[in-house]
Design a binder for these strands. Structure first.
Lengths: 234, 234
DNA sequence: GCCGCGCCTTGACGGTCGTCAAGCTTGCCG
DNA sequence: CGGCAAGCTTGACGACCGTCAAGGCGCGGC
């Protein structure tokens, strides 16, 4: 694999781990152990980190950039299951499968860097640290909650709802009235994430704009009245 | 709460736990502990076990009957997230939330019985038993896999596919050629499970029947050629 | 510069599937 | 036995949204 570097004596990374929700419960010895079984991987947009069906030997932590986890239908349609950004970890749940295989493709969106930790090494640490065990479980619980929400959205709601819902998810908590947000990724990526076509996304934004609820200028969207938009879901 | 009975000296239940994937790693003392913090709950079809938003104090193990976990949209449409049958457990992932609340409604479909275990007691046991911890995580991993699959199905596939996919999921593993299956629940329940209307389900079964792929007689369906049906997904 | 390519938008069209309504069968109960 | 409700089916209709096609805009490479 190219763009791979060892992590010996990377004190900045060590400090990062100490503040990370998944690793903060570990002591110095344990930190050293997992770093000895980890490596850094740099990637560009379009680089493939793994494919669906590959044997899963690593869990990952994002350090910079962004990437997408996605599946393809037989006729080549792409559904993005998740967009990953720092400081998220992913593929944790692979650890507990009998024959671990990644269930999605993984590809870079914006160039960046991930740290890969060997699953076997991390599993061994879990036995020693119930607190870390709990952190993993809390993490998995959050993922499950997000899945319930997504399944509900996909089966109970129409595309209009999904677009509005996505916009509202970008509003900082507590914000009210007029809010300016910037789309974090290209629109075609967003469309694949919320399971609509780029055309439908474009048209829906247009309708919202015509109705005076938002203003669109490239990837900057001004929500004129957050509450009104929230109620607008029909 | 009515239909609730204590579990002291229920030796049959104790034996059941010993063979259950979630509890088999516990020793006799630990079994006694959780049984001291558990109760049995009988229910009929239509009985509400909990509602979405209720504080989650228990995890559950099905002993008999069946029930549904579901959500409602604003306009009253029901999406069944999961059908539970023995010997499944559910709501395990609630244990790791900060302020645990059930994220779905739970209602009886066929009369039966569940065992409710206090979350606090079970959490305490997890600290002592890494093996049980692992069992919980393996369980959550399976749920996550199932969610990925469902999200993929909902976003990449049409209703025809979902019906065929559901039928195939009822075929016993390894079966080939002509297979006779019985629908496990009423059709309206199945429809809500796979996110189509009862009308669409009915029409799709009709089409498959007209094309000579299946034969339908009430809740008994004969799949004439499993492989042909598998390929029929378009 | 200018060409080509990717991203986004807009329009026209058509299929899928949900909605509404009617009718059928079955089982339950007075 | 008649009446009623529930479950399922079938038909007619229409909205939603995906597909196909065309065109504008910005950007990088030659």
């Amino acid at each position: 694999m190219h763009s791979v570097t060892p992590l010996s004596n990377n004190s900045e990374l060590a400090r990062e781990l100490r503040h990370h929700y998944l690793f903060s419960a570990l002591d110095d010895t344990q930190h050293a152990t997992i770093l000895a079984h980890a490596f850094s991987r740099r990637f560009s947009a379009g680089d493939v980190l793994f494919r669906r069906g590959d044997a899963a030997e690593y869990i990952f932590m994002m350090r910079s950039g962004s990437l997408k986890l996605y599946r393809l239908s037989q006729d080549g349609h792409e559904k993005i299951m998740r967009i990953i950004r720092p400081p998220q970890t992913f593929a944790e749940s692979m650890m507990f499968m009998d024959t671990p295989r990644y269930p999605v493709h993984c590809e870079g969106v914006e160039a960046g860097e991930v740290i890969a930790f060997e699953i076997s090494a991390f599993l061994a640490l879990l036995q020693e640290s119930f607190a870390t065990c709990r952190a993993v479980m809390a993490q998995m619980t959050q993922r499950i909650q997000a899945h319930w929400d997504e399944i509900e959205t996909l089966s109970l709601q129409n595309s209009h709802y999904r677009v509005v819902h996505y916009l509202l998810s970008l509003v900082p908590p507590g914000a009210e009235g007029e809010v300016r947000i910037t789309l974090p990724v290209r629109k075609v990526i967003i469309a694949a994430r919320i399971a609509v076509t780029p055309e439908t996304l474009s048209r829906t934004l247009r309708t919202l704009s015509d109705n005076g609820l938002i203003e669109v200028e490239d990837d900057v969207i001004t929500i004129l009245d957050t509450d009104a938009l929230r109620k607008r879901i029909h």
